[in-house]
Every structure is written in structure tokens, then in C-alpha cells.
Design a protein around this nucleic acid. Structure first.
Length: 830
DNA sequence: GTAGGGTTAG
């Protein structure tokens, strides 16, 4: 069963008892003011009165003695409500009153609401605001009708209205927002208005619509919002991308309310525009604020720098950074971090390190976010060793990694397919008291899916739901991708429909993923249907969507449709990228239509697109296959000059072509280079050089290459070296005789009859013509007890015995021409 | 009591 989607949709906690209706407050204001009640404490009994009088007298007279000793004689008879009367006696001696309260609390007596209220009033009156705040918090926590007690005791004990501000704040701090609002209006009836500062504290906890409601409703009671209030409102509107409204308030605050916007107001709105990618609007505001004499600061610039970096325009971002410096605005760690991130996302690790050094030199200590950015850059560029070193460095600096840092590292390991390491980190974060978040889980889920473990991914997501985390669209897209790659299209589509039904809208990733899967299963009709559905929903396809379709059309040989698609893209003003063109070129090259490939390449350049490594590799392999050595060499030298590298297939193709065109020296150089780059050459390429060396009677080189090709091309997870006793090596279709290479790996083990059978089984079918009895292994025992291996070339009826008793390893190179007779074989004793 | 930088999917 796949995920139940009941809790898929993220719901904001609703303040249901928080109806901001403006009519009710008007009624309240017109109501006549209520006076505060007169306080009349309960009358004590004679015994209680005596006890309290004796106790307070003792406290006053013996104040140098330890409290516990003074109060010991009263401890048995003392009740918490004695505090109420004691406070009257100690009103002029507050430290004693509070000591008594502490003593009472230390005896685990619950403090009556009335006593807490009185103590809070006394604290406010004596300007001990922090203590008052604590008392009010305690009162709210432990008594349901505490507010009434504060009001009831107010007139007699304090008459400082600030106590209500503190009470209001205590509600806000406790997250009891609707009660704080009720308190606001309740107090109006007594003529008390909560301060704007405290109302701002409430605002900063509210959702945007609630803030807006409060904005109209609260001033009806005479409250005046200040610049901070507007900043909170504007920030909140920006967060929900209501930029026009936010901008409207920037104008209104000054024009209608006479509240002047400050740097924060402008920076907030500028950031809003930046987050929406509206650079021009942001820049307009930047000049507007300057013209008003408001100086942009590092916050202001950072928003702009971040936007430029996200657009991939790091150069412009750094230019802005320099401008900021030239204006004497000091950068901070955040600004450096943004730039570092910009370069890391571009894959420019050199510039990333450069800025990191610059930042430290300028005296800005990198923080956990900076390190996370660095780690992220290293991870996404496949530098996991360095990423891990950076993580260790971060720890050594005493910085604490958080969920984001861990998720970043986990994503790095997932990308490498190292799921064990990824889960190890996941456990490490749990041990460190960190809770993996939805991103962590999505990352792990994606990693599992990419390893083909969709079921495990599904289980993981169930675990995640069980922890109360809500799946987001990325999570579903990962799972959908996993199902697609596992060929389970029906389930993938079902998940999409389910998420839709649960109110989580599939996005461009969802559609592109599914379209890609349909394209790859040659179902262009379904892909087209999805494209239509997506367009109908108003989702705009982007370059990736088009690339997926391009790949689909081209993969089916529908190159004309591919060309049309490119045209359509350009019409829709969606800028193709190198991948778009590479796909077309690749398929032209597969079709051996290098003319069309070259034209496509020209079109790409005409559009100002920069060819990437892939572009060159496609052109080179294509021209090689078409035996256009000149063109292949031209693109090769151009790519080298741009610092790009050949990939494996291009090396192989180019080497073969060079060899064919008798450019042995060039071919050899590339073969050496390719091996130095740790690429594995084709068996065919190995055969070329084995043959070349054989012809040059360079037996040592022949054997080395034989060993290498066996090691690299035949020994694999399925054929571990220790279990593969004989590995055939064969190759190409040329005029060369076929080589067979056998490598017998021995650990003082000699094949028994049974093992010979397994040798035979392990041999690639079709080559080792055992059935026809072409080549047989035998182990024979000599009369002196030493064991021989024997090749029996049955067809030829001759046997070759090799003494192996002294050998750990034997390599053979057999050169057989099936049509004629055996030509030679070489054995190598190690 | 208010603003900026980091993690996930095609």
C-alpha cells in the first residue's frame, strides 16, 4: 500500500476563536467606561490574623537571620492564603514580601491566584518588571481566572497600567493569542489601552489576514500603530507574495497615518520583490529609499545579491558587493555567505574558496550557515571527502550543525548512492537531539528511489508521517520519480491523482517527471496528454519540460518533431539550453547525419548558448563514427582549449579512428591519457594495443595489457577475481585474429574436476565453445606429484601442459584463429 | 516588537 494522503495537505493552525469583526469593537468603545473594582480581601480569623502579624513582625525584626530559621516556628500552621494578609503588612518592605513568597513556593504550596496578582502589582510598582513578568506567567499557567484576579486587585495594590501590558505579553509569549486579543478589548472597557509595542508582539505571531484584521480593528480603540507595526504587516504580506498590497501599505503609512517608513520597511519590501525575482522593482525602491535619506544597509544589499546569485548572475552580484563596499557599507557574514553560495551553485569552487578566505581575512567569522553553504557546494560537485573535512572543521570551530547541515551532507551521500553513510548521518543527528525534517526525509527517500528501493522509500515516508511530518510536493515528486524509474507507471500516476485529491497540487516537476517516464517508454501520446493537462492548469512548461519532450521525440527517431519543438520553444520565449541542443545533435549523430548536427551546433552558437563538455563529446564521437577525422580533431582541440575533458566513449571513438587512419602516435598518446584519467578503454581498444605491442615483440607490454583488460573489463561484482578462474577475452570483428586471455588466479588452489565445471559455467556463453569441445581445462598430476594445468585444444588434437606447481598466478594469452589452426600462446609465470 | 544568507524533487 502506498501512502495515505490524509495528512498531506499542510494546514495552518487556525485561530478559530479569533474573529476579527470590526463592528463589535465599535460597540465596545461607545459603551460607558467601567471603574476598576475596590479590593476587599477576605477577613482573617483571629488565629490567622495573629499568625500573620507574629510572622511578619518576626521577619521585620530578625531580617539578618536566615529566613528558614525565622519561619520554622510558623511552618506547621502556615497556609498559602496567609500570603494575602502578609502582603498588607509587608507592602512597605517588598524584599521581605517576595522572600516569603519564595519560601511558600519552596514548600511546594500552590500560590493562590490573588497572591500572584498582588505580587505582580507590587513588582510593577517597584519597577521589578522581570519578576512581575514571571509572576504573571505563573498566574496564567496555573489559574484559569487569573485575569479577573489581576483586575480585582489592581486599584488597591498598584494602579500602574503597565501591569496589563505585561499580562498581555504573557498571553502572547504563551501562544495564547486569542486570549490576548480578548484581554485587549476587555481592558478597553476599563479605559486601559495596551501599548503599541505589546500589540506588535502580538502582531508578530499572527497570520497575515489576522494582522490585517487587527490593523483595522485595534486603532478604533485609539491605538496608534508605529513603524514596527507596519514593518510586521509588510513583512507578512511579502511572505505570502502580496507585494502590491505590501507596497500599498508603504505608501499609506506615510501619506495617511503619518508614520515614516524606515530602513527596515524598505529592506523588507525590497526583499519581497527580490524573492519574487522582481529585480527592477527592488532597484527602484533602493533608489527611492536613498532619495529619502534612508541609507541601505547590509540587509538591503544582501537581498539583491541573493537574487542575482539565484539567477546565476554571480558576476553582477559581486559587482553589487563591490558597490556596497565603495559606499562604506560594511558587509557581514550573511552577505559573504550569499556570494559563496552563488559561486558554489555555479560549480565555481575556486571562487567559492576565494571568498571564504576573503571573508575570514576581513574578520568575519563563518557561522553554521556559511559552513552549510560550503558543504553544499562541495557535495553537489561530488567532493564528498572535502565536504566531510569541512564538516569536521565546522565542528572543530565549536559550531553546531543543524537539520539543514545534516540534510545537506545526507544529500551528498545519497547522490553518490552511499545510502549507508546517509542513514548513518541520519542516526547521528537523532543522537544529537536533532529531528530530521521533511527535507531530510525527502532526500533519503529520493536516495532510496534512485537505488531502486522504492518500497523502502515508501516505508520511510510512512515513518515520517508517523512522526507528524507533512509530506510536501518534493517528497511526492521523489516517490513518483522512483516509481517511474521502477517502471511502475500506474502507481506513479495514481500517486499524482491522490495528491491532487488531497489538495496538494502537482507542479511542473511532477508533470515533467511523468512525461519523461512516458517518453522513455516510447509513449509519446501519454506524454502529450500530460503536457496538455499541465497547460490547461496554467502550469508553464520550462526548459526542462521541453528537454524531456525533445529527448522523447529524438529517442523515437522523430527528429523533425524535435526540430519543431525547438521552434515552438523559441516562439514561447523559453530559452533552450545546451541540453536541448545536445539532445538533437546526439540523435543526428546517431543517425550519422553529421551535417544536420553541425547545423544544429551553429544554431546553438547563434543563440549565444555556450557549448558544454557534452556538446563537444557528442560532436567528436559523431564525427569519429562517420570517420571524419578532421572535424573530430578540430572539436577535440577546441574542447581542450576550453578546459573540457573527453569522456570515455569519446576517447574510445577517437582512438579507434586515429588507429584506423594510421595515426598510431596520437592514438597511443590518447590511450595513455585515458588510462591516466582512470577511464576503462573498450576491449576493442585494448586489443588494438595488445596487437601493436605483440607485433613489436613487446611481450611484457602485451601481458600487462592482458592483465589490465581482464581486471578492468571482466572481473566485476558478478565475477570476483578470486572466484573467476578463467576469463575469456575476446573482441573485435577485424582482420586480427581473436585473442583469448585466461588468467588463472591461484591461492594454492588448483581446479578439481568440479571447479572446472564452474569455470566453464562462468564463461560468457557463445564464446567459449565448450560444447563443440574447442578448449578444455584439465588439471593433471605428474608422476612426481606436481600439478599441471592443461589446455586441451581438442579440435587440434594437441595438448599443452604448463608446469604450475611453483606459480601463484598464471596468465595465458592464446591467439587462435578458428578457421585455421592455433597460432601461438603465451604463458606468464609470476 | 520589525528586515537579509544555508537543505529536498524533473
Amino acid at each position: 500500500m502506498f501512502l495515505c494522503l490524509a495528512n498531506a495537505k499542510k494546514r495552518l493552525p487556525l485561530l478559530s476563536s479569533f474573529p476579527f469583526s470590526s463592528s463589535s469593537s465599535i460597540d465596545r468603545i461607545t459603551t460607558k467606561l467601567r471603574p476598576f473594582p475596590d479590593y476587599s480581601p477576605r477577613k482573617p480569623t483571629i488565629n490567622d490574623a495573629d499568625l500573620v502579624r507574629d510572622l511578619t513582625t518576626a521577619l521585620k525584626q530578625r531580617r539578618s537571620e536566615p529566613l528558614r530559621r525565622i519561619l520554622a516556628p510558623f511552618a506547621q500552621r502556615f497556609r498559602p492564603d496567609h500570603l494575602l494578609w502578609a502582603f498588607s503588612y509587608l507592602r512597605s518592605d517588598l524584599p521581605l514580601a517576595f522572600s516569603l513568597l519564595h519560601w511558600c513556593r519552596s514548600r511546594r504550596h500552590p500560590i493562590p491566584a490573588e497572591a500572584l496578582a498582588i505580587a505582580a502589582h507590587l513588582s510593577v510598582a517597584s519597577r521589578n518588571l522581570e519578576f512581575a513578568r514571571q509572576l504573571l506567567r505563573e498566574g496564567l499557567q496555573s489559574h484559569s481566572r487569573f485575569v479577573e484576579q489581576v483586575i480585582y486587585t489592581y486599584k488597591h495594590w498598584c494602579s500602574n497600567p503597565y501591569v496589563f501590558d505585561l499580562l498581555f505579553r504573557a498571553f502572547v509569549d504563551a501562544g495564547r493569542l486569542s486570549e490576548s486579543r480578548s484581554l485587549f478589548f476587555h481592558l478597553l472597557s476599563y479605559g486601559i489601552t495596551i501599548s503599541t509595542d505589546s500589540c506588535n508582539a502580538l502582531l508578530s505571531h499572527l497570520a497575515v489576514d489576522e494582522i490585517q484584521a487587527a490593523f483595522t480593528e485595534f486603532p478604533e480603540s485609539g491605538l496608534r500603530w508605529n513603524v514596527v507595526s507596519y514593518n510586521i504587516l509588510i513583512h507578512s504580506l511579502c511572505q505570502v507574495r502580496k507585494l502590491e498590497e505590501a507596497h500599498g501599505f508603504l505608501v499609506k503609512m506615510e501619506d495617511k497615518d503619518g508614520v515614516l517608513p524606515d530602513v527596515i520597511t524598505y529592506s523588507t519590501l525590497i526583499d519581497g520583490y527580490c524573492k519574487s525575482g522582481e529585480l527592477q522593482e527592488a532597484l527602484k525602491l533602493l533608489s527611492e529609499m536613498s532619495s529619502k535619506g534612508l541609507n541601505p544597509n547590509s540587509f538591503t544589499y544582501n537581498s539583491l545579491i541573493t537574487l542575482l546569485c539565484n539567477d546565476g548572475n554571480v558576476v553582477e552580484a559581486e559587482r553589487l558587493f563591490m558597490q556596497m563596499l565603495s559606499y562604506g557599507i560594511a558587509p557581514d557574514a550573511a552577505v559573504y555567505t550569499s556570494l559563496i553560495n552563488g559561486y558554489s551553485k555555479k560549480g565555481n569552487l575556486f571562487a567559492m574558496h576565494r571568498l571564504f578566505t576573503e571573508m575570514k581575512t576581513a574578520g568575519h567569522a563563518p557561522d553554521a550557515v556559511t559552513y552549510t553553504v560550503l558543504i553544499s557546494g562541495l557535495c553537489s560537485n561530488g567532493k564528498m571527502l572535502e565536504a566531510n573535512e569541512m564538516f569536521v572543521e565546522m565542528l572543530s570551530k565549536g559550531l553546531t550543525p543543524d537539520e539543514v547541515t545534516y540534510s545537506t551532507l545526507i544529500a551528498g551521500y545519497c547522490k553518490e548512492g552511499k545510502m549507508e553513510k546517509a542513514f548513518h548521518l541520519h542516526n547521528e543527528m537523532l543522537h544529537g537531539g536533532l529531528l530530521p525534517n521533511v527535507v531530510t526525509y525527502t532526500t533519503l527517500c529520493d536516495g532510496l528511489c534512485k537505488q531502486g528501493q522504492v518500497e523502502a522509500a515508501n516505508e520511510l515516508l510512512h515513518e515520517m508521517c508517523g512522526k507528524g511530518l507533512v509530506l510536501n510536493v518534493c517528497t511526492f515528486n521523489s516517490l513518483i520519480n522512483g516509481l517511474c524509474k521502477a517502471g511502475n507507471m500506474d502507481q506513479a500516476v495514481k500517486i499524482m491523482r491522490d495528491m491532487e485529491a488531497a489538495g496538494l497540487a502537482p507542479d511542473i516537476y511532477t508533470y515533467t517527471t511523468l512525461m519523461d517516464a512516458y517518453c522513455k517508454s516510447d509513449d509519446m501520446d501519454q506524454a502529450r496528454l500530460l503536457l496538455k493537462e499541465m497547460l490547461d492548469k496554467g502550469l508553464q512548461p520550462n526548459v526542462v519540460t521541453f528537454n524531456v519532450l525533445m529527448n522523447g521525440f529524438c529517442g523515437l527517431g522523430m527528429l523533425e518533431d524535435g526540430k519543431m519543438l525547438l521552434k515552438w520553444m523559441l516562439e514561447k520565449n523559453i530559452r533552450p539550453n545546451a541540453t536541448t541542443y545536445n539532445t538533437l545533435m546526439k540523435h543526428y549523430s546517431i543517425d550519422k547525419n553529421m551535417k544536420a548536427a553541425s547545423e544544429t551546433y551553429k544554431g546553438m552558437l547563434a543563440l549565444g548558448l555556450i557549448p558544454d563538455e557534452n556538446t563537444y563529446n557528442i560532436l567528436i564521437t559523431g564525427h569519429c563514427k562517420s570517420r571524419n577525422m578532421k572535424e573530430a580533431c578540430y572539436y577535440y582541440s577546441e574542447m581542450v582549449s576550453k578546459g573540457f575533458n573527453l569522456r570515455k566513449s569519446s576517447y574510445n571513438a577517437l582512438i579507434k579512428l586515429l588507429f584506423r587512419k594510421k595515426k598510431l602516435q596520437e592514438a597511443t598518446r590518447l590511450f595513455e591519457e585515458m588510462r591516466a584519467m582512470k577511464f576503462v578503454a573498450d576491449k576493442e581498444v585494448y586489443s588494438i594495443f595488445i596487437d601493436v605491442n605483440y607485433n613489436e615483440k613487446n611481450v611484457q607490454a602485451v601481458l600487462e595489457l592482458c592483465d589490465e583488460v581482464v581486471e578492468k573489463c571482466y572481473v566485476s561484482d558478478h565475477f570476483p577475481a578470486t572466484f573467476v578462474y578463467a576469463i575469456p577475452f575476446t573482441s573485435f570483428e577485424t582482420t586480427h585474429p581473436t585473442y583469448h586471455c585466461f588468467r588463472l588466479k591461484k591461492n594454492n588452489f588448483l581446479p578439481e574436476e568440479d571447479n572446472i565445471a564452474s569455470i566453464i559455467e562462468s564463461v560468457e556463453p557463445g564464446f567459449f565453445h565448450f560444447n563443440t569441445g574447442l578448449v578444455i581445462f584439465q588439471s593433471l598430476q605428474n608422476h612426481n606429484g606436481s600439478i599441471h594445468y592443461a589446455f586441451v585444444i581438442e579440435k587440434l588434437g594437441c595438448q599443452h601442459h604448463i608446469e604450475t606447481s611453483k606459480c601463484r598466478e598464471v596468465a595465458f594469452l592464446l591467439k587462435i584463429n578458428y578457421d585455421e589452426t592455433i597460432i601461438f600462446f603465451i604463458c606468464k609465470f609470476l
